[in-house]
């Protein structure tokens, strides 16, 4: 019994191990440039339609990236830096709605929808399992036997 499942178990171990290693928070500092880029990609460039500060080439975007780098070196936290820009430009400068207030809906609703959908499928599968398989009744069997005898 175990032999049949062994290859799958080994596979599962390999895969889970790899994923865990990949997801493990790594030591070692992020460079200032990478850190700046990370924060900048969450902020909207003011002069553009929907580009992030990280992607935009306007001088205001470059000034913002320089400003973020300065703040990182001063030791300000990510949340503090984001708050500086929210204070200046309003919530709409964040490309990802924050989790408090109305913004939480945009994160929660899709997850809820997927869970409801998955739940619906599981319920339907259960219902189908519980339905008895169609079995011919004795009357049907007799009819078939009659026809066979005739031909």
């Amino acid at each position: 019994m175990l032999r049949r499942w062994l290859p799958w178990i080994v596979l599962a171990v390999l895969v889970v191990g790899a994923l865990a290693y990949s997801a493990w928070p790594r030591s070692g500092d992020e460079s200032v440039a990478a850190h700046t880029r990370r924060i900048a990609s969450d902020l909207r460039c003011i002069d553009c339609e929907s580009l992030s500060v990280a992607d935009s080439a306007t001088s205001s975007a470059r000034a913002t990236r320089a400003d973020i780098a300065v703040r990182i070196r001063h030791g300000e936290s990510d949340a503090e830096i984001r708050q500086v820009y929210v204070d200046r430009y309003g919530e709409s400068v964040l490309l990802k709605p924050s989790s408090n207030g109305l913004g939480i809906l945009v994160w929660a609703l899709p997850i809820a929808a997927l869970l409801i959908g998955a739940g619906g499928i599981v319920l339907a599968l259960r219902r189908w399992q519980r339905q008895p398989r169609l079995v011919a009744s004795t009357a049907d069997e007799e009819l078939v036997a009659e026809e066979r005898a005739r031909s």
Partner: peptide, 13 residues
Amino acid sequence: PGAKAALDFGTRG
């Protein structure tokens, strides 16, 4: 220079 004043004022355009 460096678009610093524009940034500090929070200009939107």
